[in-house]
Nucleic acid binder design. Structure first.
Lengths: 209, 209
DNA sequence: TTACTTTAATCAATCGTTTGATTAATTTTG
DNA sequence: CAAAATTAATCAAACGATTGATTAAAGTAA
């Protein structure tokens, strides 16, 4: 069945996403990925052409799902800038912290400054999200809600960076926060609320007049 | 001369530090490292035993230099907590942003959750630095300088995370900030002051009563 | 059958490491 | 002192293992 094929490809992508994020691109061998996925090694090349093709497919599957998430937020004229910020933080906290496996992989790949199509695609995707945030902040300054001397790029870096630090270095953040970040239940019940609450308080204090 | 031997080992470590940070542990082949360092491949094993030994040596050289930097700061009773915070931000901005090559390597390694001695060593080293910051924040709360409801672990994550985000993903932060992060001159003249100024403003707004 | 999947076997390339030989420097010996 | 012996440093070449990729044959379903 066609459905089976898609499910199997998706299963491979799931496994590949995890293994890549754990070991990095170079550290994750095709034998390990195919082994953990329970398929023959040649299937990876059959389905995705090459290891790099598989790597790319992992990203492209996600990129599509990230596309239209942050729309219709910067364009809502009736909403105040700070309300939009809070909504952004909520969405960001929910959507992004859940997909921490992919986020790790994403920023790991961005860290390596490989010069290829993938890097450019990823950068453009992330910059699109960033520009939504930028729009909100500019609007807030323009209408007097936010202080006019705020450093917009740094605010963005703080928001994304704080989350990345916690997600990407659980070995550090777990003892820091006092609970295990690698536990999905802890992420849901403790980390998400804590991140959201903190980011709101932090930015409220810094941004608002 | 003995000095020549030390200099050559140090040269290899310099090159290895850069190549590892650019390509990651798996991506950096011993052939590439030895080639860029201008030494024979066998010298790496001769001096450092193995590739992992070389990797470890890169870290151990730095760990020593990071050891006694943040001392005598949390212990100065005459200084107010906020003044300590400002001093910490100054030192952190100066010392750490300059060594961005090593910082990248450091957090890249922390991200991979390899279970070995190195990971534990690195975590302990970083947690020592963190604890200094923690001490200052607790002191600030205790003497009423800081709000009592501040989230200490998140403040720490924000401080470290913001810097890491900028340093580790120059492909993102450069278009965001509007200048090239990979340019050492730009780091010195623009990035350092901007990070310091922002972190002070941000934390001042969040922490102080 | 025919077309699509899946498999085991195998490929050349590259990996980290080791080797034996050679040179340079240092120490020991007479 | 000079000659001999020992140690340290460096090199090209090759090692076995593993990498990503390919092949041809076997299996499966319509």
């Amino acid at each position: 069945m066609d459905k089976d094929k898609i499910d199997k490809k998706d299963h491979i992508l799931d496994v590949a996403e995890r293994v890549f994020s754990e070991k990095g691109f170079d550290g994750a061998s095709t034998r390990l990925i195919s082994g953990e996925a329970g398929v023959n090694m040649a299937m990876l090349n059959y389905y995705f052409g090459s290891k790099e093709g598989l790597f790319l497919a992992v990203f492209e599957r996600k990129i599509a799902s990230f596309q239209n998430i942050l729309q219709n937020l910067g364009n809502d004229g009736s909403m105040k800038a700070w309300a939009k910020m809070e909504q952004y933080i909520e969405m960001y906290g929910d959507k992004v912290v859940s997909n921490n496996c992919f986020q790790k992989l994403l920023y790991q790949e961005m860290g390596m400054n490989r010069r290829n199509d993938l890097s450019d695609k990823l950068r453009d995707m992330l910059l699109r999200n960033v520009s939504e945030l930028d729009k909100i902040l500019q609007e807030g300054i323009a209408n007097g809600e936010f202080k006019k001397e705020i450093d917009i790029p740094m605010v963005i870096a703080a928001l994304y960076g704080t989350k990345n630090y916690i997600i990407n270095t659980p070995m550090m953040s777990s003892p820091l926060l006092g609970y295990d970040i690698r536990d999905d239940d802890m992420i849901e019940t403790r980390l998400k609320p804590q991140i959201k609450s903190f980011m709101k308080s932090l930015l409220k204090a810094y941004l608002l007049n």
